[in-house]
Amino acid sequence: METYKINGTEDTPSIILDKTTNTFEISGRSLPEDVVTFYKPTIDWLEAFGNAPNNNFSFDFKLEYFNTASSKIILDILMKLDEVAENKGASITINWHYDKNDDDMQEAGEEYAELVSLPFTFKAQ
């Protein structure tokens, strides 16, 4: 399966989805106006990956800012992973990174943790 990798810009995040190295990460800022178009390759990649996922992996969110439109897509991604864990028995941990002074980002992670059954590890920096 081909790796999906894009570099971040001032309003879009860096994304790495690499089945071979077992690296899955979204980092930086997610403020695109058209989130659906921006995240389509990510959603499609996860859809394909979900058919034959790795057995054990972490998905890292290292976000600095995200808009409410992105917050819905992040939930979609988490729900997709939740489904993969449930249907394929994959062991998935969500690593939620945030700046130790950024209570809002911590709360956002806690909100997601309540909405899906995946285990979250909170990593303050």
Partner: peptide
Amino acid sequence: IAVKKKVFNVMV
């Protein structure tokens, strides 16, 4: 940093 981030988020 916390205030700055709030301003940013509200602004966006």
